[in-house]
Simulated assay, not measured.
Amino acid sequence: MRGEWMKRLDAERPVLIAGPTASGKSAMALEVASRLGGVIVNADALQVFENWRVLTARPTRDEEAVAPHSLYGHVGRAASYSVGHWLRDLAPLLDGPARPIVVGGTGLYFTALTEGLADIPPTPPEIRAAADARIAAEGAAALLAELDAATAARIDRQNPMRVQRAWEVLRTTGRGLAAWQDETPPPLLPLAAAQPLLLDADRDWLGDRIDRRFDAMIANGALDEAERNLERGWDPALPSSKAIGAAELMDFLQGNRSLKDAVADGKTATRQFAKRQRTWFRSRMRAWMPIALP
């Protein structure tokens, strides 16, 4: 299958490439852009932030020189950035002169793009602050217990950010997230109008790649990057601070754990994140063309 997928692509319709972290999505996008042309567009909720290039595995400057890239590192470290923001930033690129090659690991971005996104009112700062405080003090389970049954059954319960978002919607609007989603407008890009590819990675193979990539991140400056973030004022509640491995590296820099433990825990956190991604993809993206890895 790995050698056949390129032959199935045409040079006109947008290409969507989804898959778990460290599975080789960026390399695949570069291959498509090199052979068929197009602009590579980020669909990763953490690679949008300007303050993490190494730790979020954003394309390197050399890779960015091979083909045009968009929506990488364009959001300030202290800013909030939602799937709605991403859709608004993406919309002009769908009608631009270059065919978009949308690549990333945030399943919610892809489903919002191809299935539509409910027009939910923004969360007031005081409700966001209350949610942040409760997550820190009680954990996501406390918020999950207060959700309506339909929403609790639909969201990714293992993802604290998704649980918090659902709780904020309920508190802000008085309606569950599921009810809003059931009134979703038409999508920007229906799946039938695109060429969707889903990387399906073997767990052990992916785990080895995750470990080696995290070691490479440390060797390529992830600690320096974390130190710059610490100097600018580290706030674990910021969306940009959710970069996988950031909390562990900050603990090391603040003297709370050894570098060896920080790296080991960062690898574990990345593996857990990849597991959540694979679960999402398999349940929500069954119509996509699977690309078996390795």
Results as ranks from 00 to 15, higher is better:
155 I>A: 02
49 F>D: 07
232 R>P: 00
200 D>S: 14
203 R>T: 12
123 T>G: 05
109 Y>E: 02
136 A>W: 07
262 A>W: 03
146 E>V: 13
286 R>H: 05
46 L>K: 12
69 H>N: 09
140 A>P: 13
101 I>A: 01
121 P>C: 11
156 D>G: 05
248 E>C: 05
72 Y>S: 07
200 D>N: 12
88 R>K: 13
128 R>C: 06
106 T>W: 12
119 D>P: 01
215 D>Q: 15
180 W>L: 03
191 L>V: 13
150 A>Y: 01
125 P>A: 14
278 R>K: 09
4 E>F: 14
210 I>M: 08
84 G>F: 07
279 T>S: 11
79 A>I: 01
278 R>P: 00
230 L>T: 04
186 P>Q: 14
45 A>K: 11
163 V>M: 10
63 E>W: 04
183 E>L: 11
196 P>T: 04
3 G>Q: 12
132 D>I: 02
13 R>Y: 11
10 D>H: 11
44 D>C: 10
79 A>G: 09
188 L>V: 13
203 R>D: 13
66 V>A: 13
92 P>H: 07
215 D>C: 10
69 H>I: 08
245 G>K: 07
177 L>N: 02
155 I>F: 02
28 M>R: 09
72 Y>W: 11
267 K>Q: 15
234 W>R: 06
164 Q>H: 09
222 A>D: 09
284 R>N: 12
276 R>S: 12
258 S>L: 05
56 T>Y: 08
231 E>M: 02
125 P>C: 08
178 A>I: 01
109 Y>R: 04
65 A>C: 13
160 P>R: 05
276 R>W: 04
85 H>G: 08
263 V>E: 04
14 P>A: 11
268 T>Y: 08
83 V>S: 14
257 R>A: 10
89 D>H: 11
291 I>P: 00
83 V>Y: 03
4 E>L: 15
43 A>I: 05
73 G>R: 14
221 G>Y: 09
170 L>Q: 15
18 A>R: 02
97 P>M: 10
292 A>D: 12
247 A>M: 10
85 H>R: 13
198 L>F: 06
144 L>G: 13
74 H>W: 03
12 E>T: 15
225 E>Q: 08
42 N>T: 09
161 M>A: 15
113 L>N: 05
101 I>S: 00
282 R>L: 06
254 Q>S: 03
4 E>V: 15
79 A>S: 15
34 S>W: 06
92 P>R: 01
106 T>G: 07
117 L>G: 06
4 E>Q: 15
30 L>K: 08
29 A>E: 03
182 D>V: 04
183 E>H: 14
23 S>E: 00
106 T>R: 08
95 D>P: 00
141 A>K: 11
225 E>N: 06
33 A>M: 05
91 A>F: 02
45 A>M: 14
155 I>D: 02
106 T>E: 07
46 L>C: 10
7 K>Q: 14
139 G>W: 14
234 W>D: 03
113 L>Y: 02
162 R>Y: 00
167 W>L: 14
131 A>K: 04
245 G>E: 01
269 A>R: 12
33 A>H: 01
133 A>W: 06
99 R>G: 07
253 L>G: 03
231 E>K: 12
151 T>V: 07
97 P>F: 11
7 K>H: 14
243 A>S: 13
156 D>K: 11
293 L>I: 10
119 D>Q: 15
274 A>R: 02
281 F>R: 00
11 A>T: 14
176 G>F: 01
255 G>N: 03
47 Q>D: 06
148 D>E: 13
139 G>Y: 12
